[in-house]
């Protein structure tokens, strides 16, 4: 540990760049980011007088949230809630039932190429379109009400479960399927013995998770007339009835939290 020894080693060290190795690219990206941010922030027009007016409304909303009014609009809330809950359950059941064959069809290791393509495009279409846009079209076709909402959520469920199920089937332990194939099993037997036991717990978990999501979505699609509690929320907000809106939001949060807790519990039970 002599001083002479110390001096033979460099006494400065700079951390080498980790993500982008080229100095030029780092500078270009930096400048690009700064330019974008200034442009983007510049294009945000803020109407300050409206915002200042809003502060008072914001306070009223917080007050409404703290002292929710369940009674005035109870009839709307009740029917909206019933629609939301029934819609959630039926659409999840139907969606899962349809998505199982589609998921199997979209698994590369099970399906022939033509079937794979068809199923994958159904899934892609369902995933690319937001629920609310689908709801707009279903409302235009089937009229206002929960039935359009039910169709919307079922359609969205197909894309969600179908994709994850297909990925799960593609990820299964091949050796188990191999062993079943080696016994001379038919295609249906293969699904039943080689695939189903491996993906069943996941499928149940996913269905419960989707049930959760469908409820959250059911609270939204009412805005465009597809039934559910969203309609009641939308009306009360546009009429500045913040105490009723607060009540509805509290109900939504409570149901979501309970559902999340229960589904987490159930999923652990299934595993």
């Amino acid at each position: 540990m002599s001083v002479a020894n110390l001096q033979t080693f460099p006494s400065t060290w700079k951390k080498p760049p980790q993500m982008i190795k080229s100095r030029r690219w780092r500078i270009i990206l930096m400048i690009g980011a700064v330019c974008y941010l200034t442009l983007a922030l510049g294009s945000v027009e803020i109407n300050w007088t409206r915002v200042i007016d809003g502060i008072e409304r914001g306070q009223r909303f917080i007050q409404g949230f703290l002292e929710p009014d369940f009674t005035t609009r109870w009839r709307d809330i009740r029917s909206g809630l019933i629609e939301s809950l029934t819609m959630t359950f039926t659409s999840t059941v139907v969606g899962v039932l349809i998505s199982v064959p589609i998921g199997i069809g979209a698994a590369r290791n099970l399906a022939p190429p033509w079937l794979y393509l068809i199923c994958r495009s159904i899934i892609a279409a369902s995933r690319a379109l937001q629920e609310i846009i689908v709801a707009i079209f279903f409302v235009a076709l089937f009229g206002f009400g929960a039935f359009a909402g039910f169709l919307t959520l079922s359609f969205a469920t197909i894309g969600f479960i179908g994709k994850l199920l297909a990925e799960d089937i593609e990820d299964i332990d091949e050796s188990q399927a191999e062993a079943i194939r080696a016994t001379g099993a038919s295609w249906r037997q293969l699904i039943n013995y080689g695939i189903q036991p491996q993906v069943m717990p996941r499928l149940i978990g996913l269905s419960l998770y989707r049930l959760d999501i469908n409820f959250r979505e059911s609270a939204v699609i009412g805005i465009v007339g597809a039934g559910g509690i969203g309609a009641a929320l939308s009306t009360s907000l546009s009429r500045y009835e913040y105490d009723s809106a607060g009540a509805i939001l509290l109900i939504i949060i409570a149901i979501v939290m309970t559902a999340e807790y229960l589904s987490g519990h159930l999923r652990r039970l299934v595993k």
């Binding site: 809003g54 939204v220 939504i252 979501v256």
Partner: peptide, 23 residues
């Protein structure tokens, strides 16, 4: 709380408070 409320509902709420617009 933030997770349970869909962004569309957050938007309705904020539009009602702050007025329509990008903000």
């Amino acid at each position: 709380t933030s997770r349970s409320i869909n962004s569309l509902i957050w938007a309705m709420l904020l539009v009602s408070i702050l007025g329509p617009g990008i903000l």
